[in-house]
């Protein structure tokens, strides 16, 4: 046995194993080289004792290396032949998958999230306030006359402790202004309550989202219009336009109602816009200087404010036909909004 012989054996074995195609051929080679009885390598191992002592370590090392090489090659040949030859049972990919399906966000939440995202682009911070409010924050500070009908028991939920369930999210704006000096720029979504009888477009429990920007430098109706025009395009589509109609709110002056051109018919007239081409979306205006007075701001501040009904936007956006669907919480209905 010489080193050369071992090198020769290694080359032959690897070549034969590389050529082996079927598991049977591989098995035959295993017996040939590694078989316990007549295998070539075990036989060589036995001959090691006849090698002169001086050459023994060297020869032993070479033999081990040969054995490792052949074993590895055999394993590789085995793997290759089995995957090539054996038929695996085909998998039925039409079976239902095994993972929890994502849930759906409520359309009211989606509108709030989307709206706050859009106004965040313009530098508005989200603000929040309690549902149970003081009369001052909900009415007095917002310049609502003492005898204004909205203060009626017929319209407002008064509480036994003298506070009330806020009828609008505007008191959050009062809180924000009481807490900081101008400039203030907030968007405040929240839940409101009015003693409305529930029908397809009204609920005693509903959501508003309002925005306020107050500054010591001029903030104009034109600024308000372009801010809302940006929102309209982001929320409803790039071609949606904004129109102002003069109106009245106690806390803004001038006050306007804000229409968006119908995103479905592009102003031609359809069911959603009641053939008018326009959809009433928001109320807005220039913050009344009397509001600044009530909260102790300098009266020569400038500011605009706007507010809109979240349910109404959700209904318009998704073609929801009845507001009550939003509070029935039927999973079959809600799942659509995933």
């Amino acid at each position: 046995m010489t080193i050369d012989e071992l090198t020769q054996i290694k080359a032959t074995a690897l070549a034969e194993l590389a050529a082996a195609k079927t598991p049977d051929e591989v098995e035959a080679l295993r017996i040939k080289y590694l078989g316990a009885k007549n295998g070539l390598l075990p036989a060589l191992m036995k001959q090691l004792k006849d090698v002169p002592p001086a050459d023994k370590p060297q020869m032993g090392k070479e033999l081990n290396a040969l054995r490792t090489a052949v074993t590895d090659a055999l394993q590789a040949a085995k793997d290759a032949s089995s995957s090539a030859g054996e038929a695996v049972e085909p998998f039925d990919f039409s079976l239902p998958g095994n993972w929890t399906k994502a849930g759906a966000m409520h359309p009211v939440s989606s509108v709030i999230e989307e709206t706050t995202r859009i106004f965040a682009q313009l530098g508005f911070t989200v603000a929040d306030g309690p549902d149970m409010e003081t009369e001052f924050n909900n009415f007095d500070a917002l310049n609502t006359a003492k005898h204004h009908p909205s203060r009626d028991e017929r319209d407002t939920f008064w509480l036994a402790d003298g506070n009330l369930l806020r009828t609008q999210t505007s008191p959050v704006q009062i809180r924000a202004m009481l807490a900081t000096k101008p400039p203030v720029r907030i968007i405040n979504p929240g839940r409101c309550y009015r003693r409305d009888t529930t029908d397809a477009t009204h609920a005693a429990n509903f959501h508003q989202i309002e925005g306020l920007y107050v500054d010591v430098k001029p903030v104009s109706l034109a600024d308000l219009k372009s801010t809302l025009a940006h929102f309209a395009r982001e929320m409803m589509g790039p071609n949606v336009k904004v129109r102002f109609r003069p109106h009245f709110f106690p806390f803004t002056e001038p006050s306007v109602e804000v229409d968006f051109s119908c995103h479905l018919c592009h102003g031609k007239g359809c069911r959603v816009c009641k053939q008018s081409g326009w959809i009433e979306i928001a109320g807005a205006g220039i913050v009344d200087t009397r509001v600044f007075k009530h909260i102790g701001y300098p009266e020569d501040c400038y500011g605009f404010a706007f507010g809109m009904g979240v349910e109404r936007i959700a209904m318009i956006k998704h073609g929801i036909t009845d507001l009550r669907h939003l509070y029935t919480n039927d999973l079959r209905y809600l799942k659509q909004f995933v």
């Binding site: 399906k101 849930g103 409520h106 706050t116 989200v126 919480n329």
Partner: peptide, 25 residues
């Protein structure tokens, strides 16, 4: 706090929960 609430809402949806909304009263 409001952004965290939004993250919580989105995470729950991703975990497979659907959001419901009930009246306060």
């Amino acid at each position: 706090a409001i952004r965290a609430a939004s993250l919580c809402r989105r995470t729950l949806c991703q975990l497979g929960f659907t959001e419901i909304m009930n009246y306060s009263f």
